[in-house]
Structures are given as C-alpha cells and as structure tokens.
Simulated assay, not measured.
Amino acid sequence: MATRKTSEIIDSETEAAFSLLADETRLSILRVLADSPHERLTFSQLRERVGVADSGRFNYHLGKLTDLFVKKSEGGYELRLAGWMVVGAILAGSYTRGESIGPVPVSAPCAICGGSVEATYADETVAIACADCDAHYTSASIPPGVFEGHDDAELPDVADMYTRSVFSQARLGFCSRCHGRIEPRLVTETNELLMHDCEGPTAAYTCERCHDEHVSSVHLAFIDHPAVVSFYYDHDVDLTQPHLWGSAWRTKPVVELESEDPLRARVEFTVGEETLTLVADEDLEVLDIERQ
C-alpha cells in the first residue's frame, strides 16, 4: 500500500488567499474562533481573546480575513468552511515534520517468514516491515497530529485506522487532500501516475483535481464490501478492527487477472475450508460473488 503527493496547481486567487494567513495575529484570530465553535464572538470579545490592545490594528487584520475565512453577522464573528480547513490543517500538523516514533512491534507475525513485524514513523511516513526478512507491508503518509494523545505503542493500530479511513474515503469517490473527485481503477502494469511497479492486478485511486494517488492490493479494495465483511464475521474475524498488517488474513487472499479485455480481476478470500470469490471490473465494481 502506498500514497503519493503530487504538485498542486495554485492560481493567483489561491495564492492571494494564502498570503492573507502570513501573519501571527490573523492565525490567532482563526484559532480563537475555532475554540468557540458554538458561539459568535463580538468584535470586543474576539479582540480580547486574541490579546491585541490596539483596536485599529486588530480591525485591520480581522478585515483581511472577513468574507473569505471569517463570516460576520449580526451576532458577531464565526469561521467559514475555509477557516475551519486552515485550522484543521494546523492542528493535524500538516505544516510540521513531527517527531520520529519506533520501531514499535506489530502483533501479527510476518506472513512470509514468521518473523517480527515493526512499525516506524519518520518524515511524516509510517512504514510497516519485517525485521527479519525483506518483507515490506506498507508505506503511508500520515500527518503527525494523527498520533497526538496516543502512546507510541499504539502506532500500528492508529496508523491502521487512519490509513483505512483514507482509503474508505477514496473508495467513496472523495480525495482526502483536496476533496476532489476520485476515480478508482484496476491497473495491471507500471503507470506514470504510480509510485511503484505493479506486480499483478493493483487497485489505484487517483484524484482528478490534485492528482493525489493511493495504491493498494486489490483485496483491500473490498475490505468493507458487505460480502467480505460478513464472510469474515462468520469466521469470528471483525474487519472493523485494525487488521491491515495481516492479522485478519489468516490465509492471504489470492488476486489473479481473469481477463485483459475486458479487464477483470478475481479475488479469493479463504478461511479454513471456505472460500469467497469476487470478480471485479476495471472500475473496481464487483460483477460476481461466489461463496463455497
């Protein structure tokens, strides 16, 4: 599983909007309004909480934010959606590098050699790999704010849940970075938009606006499909729990290319002596389900 950032196209209006935030007082205004989500603050209340004595200077900075990041009404001031998104990015740590964590042991053993699997977090990236062989399970970009309030030992589970939330949003058709439209697709070979070479069928999710791309094994594209969820639940495996690193897959699902024209992939999930088979098309839509 891998994620990649691509360059964003910034027009003059966007550049002008971000230039308005290049001031500590203006950022403080946004943070104070975010700390009072259920009330509108008057000019005096807002100025007092921000801590600016000069009324004229404060009015100048507030005026720069109003209409774009801040909404003014009869009751006072509150954040607009754009303001909330700026505050959210700050709290997520999107503009900081964060501290390194790990290595932290992962409960599931390596599916290849049975050795110890470890999770590390550095340079805004979580990596899950075997300490005893060359097996590499995932590399995913995660904002440092995601781990705030969690112990280091929780790194694997928190990274699992966050990564699944990103892919869940992508499967529903929304980009987690710019909220643009996502087009899921089945790919079978190296593509200029992909970070890594594909070995067999691969699930890819590409944003049409910012071109951010998420790539995963095809079987993970159906981790929340009703047929897959019920199949594992019948075998006492709850797929809502952290399992991306292998503990849910008692037998690793088999993914095969069923046909090239039209493009089709077959995924077989097996637990014990029972197998669930899905056939998906180039848009990762399930065409056929068989359980035996």
Rank of each mutant, 00 (worst) to 15 (best):
M1P: 09
I10E: 09
A16V: 14
A16E: 15
S19C: 07
L20H: 11
L21K: 04
L27H: 03
L27T: 09
S28H: 07
V32L: 05
L33D: 03
S36V: 09
H38A: 12
R40E: 15
S44H: 02
Q45T: 02
E48A: 11
E48S: 13
E48G: 00
R49G: 10
A53E: 15
F58S: 05
F58L: 04
Y60H: 08
Y60A: 02
H61S: 01
G63W: 04
K64T: 03
L65C: 04
T66C: 10
F69C: 04
S73N: 10
A82Q: 03
G83R: 08
V86P: 07
I90W: 14
L91P: 02
A92S: 09
T96Q: 05
R97V: 12
R97Q: 12
E99M: 01
P103R: 03
V104I: 14
P105L: 13
P109A: 06
C110K: 00
A111G: 07
G114M: 01
G114R: 01
G115W: 01
S116K: 05
S116N: 11
V117D: 00
D123K: 15
A127S: 15
I128D: 01
A129I: 03
A129L: 09
A131P: 06
A131Y: 02
C133A: 00
S139Y: 04
S139C: 09
A140F: 15
S141G: 06
P144F: 01
P144N: 02
F147Y: 10
E148A: 03
D151L: 13
D152M: 12
A159G: 09
A159M: 10
D160F: 07
D160I: 08
T163F: 01
V166L: 14
A170C: 13
R171Q: 11
G173R: 00
G173C: 02
C175S: 05
R177V: 10
E183A: 13
R185C: 14
L186W: 09
V187C: 00
V187K: 00
D197N: 14
P201N: 02
A203K: 04
A204F: 12
A204Q: 14
Y205F: 15
T206Y: 07
C207D: 06
R209F: 12
E213H: 14
E213G: 07
H214P: 01
S217V: 05
A221I: 07
I223P: 00
I223V: 08
D224Q: 14
A227F: 04
V228P: 12
S230L: 10
F231Y: 09
F231H: 03
Y232I: 08
Y233P: 01
D236I: 08
T240D: 13
T240W: 06
W249S: 00
W249M: 03
R250W: 12
K252A: 09
V254E: 11
V254R: 11
L257D: 10
E260D: 11
L263D: 13
L263T: 14
L263K: 15
R264Y: 13
A265E: 04
V267M: 06
V267L: 03
V267Y: 02
F269Q: 06
G272I: 12
T275A: 03
T277R: 15
A280G: 10
D281C: 13
L284C: 13
V286N: 00
V286L: 00
D288W: 11
I289N: 03
I289L: 02
R291L: 10
Q292V: 08
